[in-house]
Amino acid sequence: MLYIECPWCGFRDDEEFHYGGEAHIQRPTDPNELNDEEFSEYLYLKSNPKGVILERWLHSRGCRRWFNVLRNTVTNEITEIYPIDTLPNSKEGTEYYGQNWRRKSSVEKTIKPREYK
């Protein structure tokens, strides 16, 4: 069982949370500009790394707020928790974000990068 620290409520059992999938997936500004292959890249392709991943969690049975988590898929160790509208601060989080295939994907090439706070 995971023991997750909600940025608002503090440490809670994972039964109080819902998993929200991969974080930082940008929606294309104009989906009609993309061809089917590019759109399916945005819609269906998800990162599934062995090691660290950036993902979203929802404290559904508590304060009902979303937040981002940096988790290692091998050890289940959570090393960073940060607000939903920001980028990771830690070294491994920043590295993972920069090197993720999505940064070079055709969806992100065609749109203005999202402005994080």
């Binding site: 409520c9 809670r12 039964e15 109080e16 049975r61 508590g62 304060c63």
Partner: peptide, 10 residues
């Protein structure tokens, strides 16, 4: 005050 589960009830 906390929001949580009690016997599976919210």
């Amino acid at each position: 005050a906390v929001q949580s589960n009690l016997a599976l009830a919210l």
